[in-house]
Design a protein around this nucleic acid. Structure first.
Lengths: 197, 197
DNA sequence: GCCGTATCATACAATCTGTATGTTTCTTCA
DNA sequence: TGAAGAAACATACAGATTGTATGATACGGC
């Protein structure tokens, strides 16, 4: 006889508490930053205990990694949706940039992905999280847009990295009050001139 | 009767211990990162005690700020020296970029100024530290190089910010093993195309 | 030479992280 | 179905860290 509704499968229990911890952690990481957020505060916000946290995550850094991965995934999905229509490679770059700016306006993503992320996880790991596909897609986009005058792989990779850095900085400046339109236009001219060799 | 050479002025005492703390802190911040460096470790490396540290610096963050400021100042001097000769505005941008890459190869500067800095001090304060003059010089350089087709102040500021972000990313990638020459050339073409409106 | 202050050392309280251990709930299988 | 075992979670603990408060020593002005 299973008592009313208090009987839940282990999988179900794990999923809900894991999600609760992730949500609470995201909220605190965003408002206070990673360093100034304590695990007691996180579990208090999630109405749990530190036992649950350390059962689901190896340590505080692993929890942050999970939060950052989830956030980066959401950003990636937004961009994919925006560039799903068949566009010219050059327009895909521009539309993708605009979609990235819009996605990064979601409060907290700047701090999570561009400020705390690199410091907490290191540049390598952070790049692996969001650029696993982004870097490759960017390279492909640039290559197609510049065809047939495609630069060598090293130059291409460098161009993609620099362009992605410009995207990040644009998102940062926009979050600090700069005009999205001005930056979108500036990025567009940047793409145009970069591509029109 | 002043005992042999142990008599030093207060100013002298302060300067040496302050420098010792800064040096020790820099070394540890660079190798372990800000978060994984403890104040006991810092003062142990400086052969002092935490009392001295908290006498000279308000807290750990203030110490980091002092270290970062000193480092950013050194970078700025390197760039100024490199661009001191009278060059065309466009060449000044290119030479300055190259000087920046070289200056940032000094071990630890990447971590201090580009990774930990923004996370610990925030984007605003970090920008105030290194871009106080850099941003303005960059804008002037771009404006002169693009003359007479100078864009409006908003666009100009955006271009300078994006270009500076590209510089930073280039320094990061170079620190991760990318070729300095490839990135220097890529930055040069980027400048050429951006400027030749 | 003495008193106030700056410099630095030591001691302390509060907090946090990670782990170890205990308790409850679910799952499996005989 | 009913233990036995494992998973999920709570509690307790040890070590370390930060910032402050207090104490000792060296310097500076009168």
């Amino acid at each position: 006889m299973q008592q009313q509704n208090s009987r839940r499968s282990n999988r179900e229990r794990s999923d809900t508490t894991r999600a609760a911890i992730l949500d609470a952690a995201r909220g605190l990481f965003v408002t206070r930053g990673y360093a100034d957020t304590s695990t007691p505060d996180i579990v208090a916000a999630a109405r749990l205990t530190r036992g649950a946290l350390y059962h689901h995550f190896e340590d505080k850094k692993a929890l942050f990694r999970a939060v950052a991965e989830r956030e980066a995934g959401a950003v990636a999905i937004s961009i994919e949706q925006a560039t799903a229509n068949d566009l010219t490679p050059r327009d895909a770059l521009k539309v993708g940039a605009r979609a990235y700016f819009d996605a990064m306006r979601e409060p907290g993503r700047i701090r999570l992905l561009l400020l705390d992320g690199p410091a907490v996880l290191g540049k390598q790991e952070m790049a692996a999280i969001d650029a696993a596909n982004a870097q490759r897609t960017l390279e492909e986009g640039i290559a197609e847009a510049m065809a047939p005058a495609v630069p060598g792989p090293e130059r291409l990779s460098a161009m993609a990295s620099l362009l992605s850095a410009a995207f990040d900085r644009a998102a940062l400046d926009i979050a600090d009050g700069a005009s999205t339109d001005v930056y979108a236009e500036t990025i567009c001219t940047l793409i145009d001139r970069l591509v029109s060799a």
